[in-house]
Every structure is written in C-alpha cells, then in structure tokens.
Amino acid sequence: MNTREQKLQAFDRLLTIMDELREQCPWDKKQTMQTLRHLTIEETYELGDAILENDLEEVKKELGDVLLHIVFYSKIGSETGDFDIADVCNNICEKLINRHPHIYGDVKVTSEEDVKRNWENIKLKEGKGKTSVLEGVPKGLPALVKASRIQDKVAGVGFDWEKPEQVWEKVQEELGELQAEVKINDQDKMESEFGDVMFAMVNYARFLNISPENALERTNKKFIGRFQYLEGKAKELGKELKEMTLAEMDVFWEEAKQAQ
C-alpha cells in the first residue's frame, strides 16, 4: 500500500489537475454547483452499485469519480471566496472530533448504541436554529432510504422499540389494517396503510441489522437474472413470452432459481 507521503502527493496531483481543467477545459470552465449536482447523484448511485456487486476494482474507480466531484465543488467555492478544499477537510475533522467525545474527550461509552445516541444529541446541539433531530434528513432522499434515516435518528435519542418481537407485532398490526382497507376498497386509505406497512417493515429490518435498501436491490437483481433467463429460453424456442402460458414460463423460472 502507499505511504502517507504518497497519498498526500496523489491528492495534491488531483488538486493540480483540477486547477488546470478549470482554467483550460471549455466544459470544466462552464460547470457550476447546480450543473454538477445531478451528476454527483449519478456517481453516488454508481458507487452504490459497485459496492453491492462487491466489485472492488469498480469501487476504486467510482470512489475516484466521487472524490473528483468533492474537489470540483471545493474549487468552485474557492473561486467565490466562500471555502476551499482545506476548509472542507478541516470542517469534517472538527466535526468528527466534536462528535466522538469518547475518543477525544472524557465521555464513557459501553456500546455502539451509546455512540449513536451521543452523535444525535451532539448534532441537535450543533444545529443552528434546528429544533428537531429530523431536520437533518434530506428531503430529496428516496422514500425507502428516508424511512431508514428517520428511524435511525429518532432511535438515537431513545425513541425506539425495546426488542424485535414488538416491531414484528407492529408489522402484523399494520398488515391487518391494510387488509381492512383493501376490503373497503378505498384507494387513498389503502395507499396510506400500505405506507405504514412498509415503514414498519423498514423498522423491523433495522432490528434485524438488515439494510432494506440493500435487501430490496438484492431481490431486484435476483428477479432480473431469472427473468432474463426466461427470456433467453423463450428465444431458444423461437417464441415470444406473450405466446407462452404461465405454466410454460414457470418451468424456466424454476430452472433459473436452481441456477442461482
């Protein structure tokens, strides 16, 4: 692995290249924080995909893309005199030191839960004008991820169930309420109750130490693989899927499950 000096040299090289691109490249010169935003989100999702695939070579590449965006935003910030990359680094260093008083102070902790609880309490004290631990949850997060973050944050200040069995009972309760609305066939109430079921399931996943986002994406990939196997078999037979019966398709679906 690289030495600390080599790591610093590599980062300095990236900063130099960013300076050069900003001065000389027509595309890079035109970019603003607003134009980069959607690209940054895309790069973050690509990193997430590489992590889920456990493709470490791809993870390395995608981390570079994300790091480039961080350096790019910092370069733009330096041009307006608001902040530069040193300010960004120092800010996160100070934040980490402040939020780890059990490492850099005299606070005692006995578990990971103590650390998370302290973290959320400190964040609430740090917030300028913030009165809720939930103000730190980005509004633009996908709903599934947002539900996880909401639950993590309220749990961090003690608003939580005591054991998984209680959460599972809540899931069953919400399922019952959903079924009751399905029988009435009120679309608005069905949607509301379905949301409650999903929220409760996300909470249950947290108690089982399962990432609901990762779990669902794993199922998505599994389904895609099986369906594409089915499409391939249909093509071998010279058929369109819509020409096949469900029973015929199910044979290949079971084959795909065995192959996985």
Score class of each variant (00 low, 15 high):
93 C>W: 02
55 D>I: 11
73 Y>Q: 04
83 F>H: 11
24 Q>L: 07
74 S>L: 04
73 Y>T: 01
56 L>V: 14
57 E>H: 07
28 D>E: 12
78 S>F: 14
90 N>P: 00
92 I>D: 10
71 V>H: 01
34 Q>T: 08
54 N>H: 11
32 T>S: 11
53 E>A: 10
58 E>D: 02
82 D>A: 12
40 T>P: 03
72 F>I: 06
87 D>F: 02
27 W>C: 03
41 I>F: 04
63 L>C: 15
94 E>S: 15
41 I>H: 04
22 R>V: 04
48 G>L: 09
41 I>G: 12
45 Y>D: 14
61 K>E: 15
52 L>G: 13
79 E>P: 00
89 C>D: 01
87 D>W: 07
24 Q>R: 08
15 L>Y: 10
25 C>T: 10
45 Y>E: 14
59 V>K: 00
28 D>G: 05
82 D>G: 05
30 K>H: 13
73 Y>E: 05
27 W>E: 15
66 V>A: 03
50 A>R: 00
41 I>R: 03
74 S>N: 01
81 G>E: 08
73 Y>P: 02
73 Y>C: 04
22 R>C: 03
74 S>H: 01
68 L>R: 07
22 R>S: 03
29 K>W: 10
60 K>D: 09
61 K>W: 01
84 D>K: 15
53 E>S: 05
96 L>P: 11
29 K>S: 08
50 A>Q: 01
61 K>G: 10
18 M>A: 13
60 K>S: 15
91 N>H: 10
82 D>N: 08
31 Q>M: 08
94 E>I: 11
92 I>L: 15
40 T>E: 04
66 V>K: 02
74 S>Q: 03
36 L>V: 06
33 M>E: 06
40 T>A: 06
29 K>H: 13
49 D>W: 03
